[in-house]
Write a protein that binds this DNA or RNA. Structure first.
Ligand SMILES: [Mn+2]
Ligand SMILES: [Mn+2]
Ligand SMILES: [Zn+2]
Ligand SMILES: [Zn+2]
Lengths: 147, 147
DNA sequence: AATGAAAATGAAAATCATTATCAGTTAATA
DNA sequence: TATTAACTGATAATGATTTTCATTTTCATT
């Protein structure tokens, strides 16, 4: 991933502080490649830093999302879920089972997807004067266990 | 759109009843091509049928979603939003402004998208034994007024 | 090292979309 | 008409997220 200094610099440059709670939350993302909810992140952070409160987790997730470091998704299970923006934006997309809620990351055919979305982004941003920063492709259906 | 009889048949065949509140809610969708929240639908229905309660709106939206008649999306503004599944699934995709929340429907380049997603769906459903029913493509960024 | 301003925090309360409960109503069918 | 299951509105409950507020931490400047 990025060096530790990179993050510190980004925070500093934008007038934020890279505090212990924030580092702890970033660590969770770097050690965990799942789609985590605020509650799950809170519990993981709590193992090493029992003092960190849930409100701070929410505040930090919001900040990291604003900064574009993590990506917030809604998979329809009642809470927002977050993952590193690199992975979410570039690496893969999602199959979502509408019965059991399972989420499958797929990274097959990504070259083809990249090519396709790049073209589309160019045309769309021109036509709508829209500055595109990221995209998401969700396929909904039934996983093998649910059909 | 579909004839009125079509809907009645679908409900009946699946053991549901096409009641007044349900018809009223379906009418809202047929007269309105926006991405509506439960609250907004409740208010629109309320004009002609003041007796219909919010709980019934939620229940009906859930039922229509299960039946695949409407499509539920989350655009990140704190509530679920619904539109007719035909339009949502086949006709267009979305540009979402992360600053002001504006949602732009686009239906340009749809032929190209259709071709692309069809191929992808075939390959993905094979590899993951996943039965794909629908998909969503969201582009996030800044609209013309927000950059 | 002491100071002061701004940023950040935890605990608790508040908000608000959504869901569950429940007693009464409606529609289908025999 | 009687039986039954589906459906309803009103209301309470739930639960994720946000806000509030008093206190603490950070950090540039003395
Ligand atoms: Mn993912
Ligand atoms: Mn749309
Ligand atoms: Zn499943
Ligand atoms: Zn905007």
């Amino acid at each position: 991933m990025h060096g530790a200094g990179w993050c510190y610099r980004r925070f500093k440059d934008e007038g934020f502080r890279l505090t212990i709670p924030r580092q702890a939350i970033l660590d969770v993302f770097n050690q965990n490649s799942k789609h985590l909810s605020a509650e799950e992140i809170f519990l993981l952070v709590h193992r090493n830093y029992p003092g960190v409160g849930l409100a701070t987790v929410y505040r930090t997730l919001d900040l990291l999302t604003q900064m574009g470091i993590i990506f917030k998704s809604d998979f329809g299970d009642g809470c927002s879920r977050y993952e590193l923006a690199d992975e979410a934006t570039k690496g893969h997309h999602h199959l979502i089972c509408t019965r059991c809620g399972r989420i499958i990351d797929y990274s097959d055919f990504i070259e083809k997807e990249e090519k396709f979305t790049k073209e589309l982004e160019t045309e769309l941003s021109q036509k709508y004067k829209f500055k595109i920063n990221s995209h998401q492709i969700h396929f909904y259906g039934l996983c093998d266990k649910c059909q």
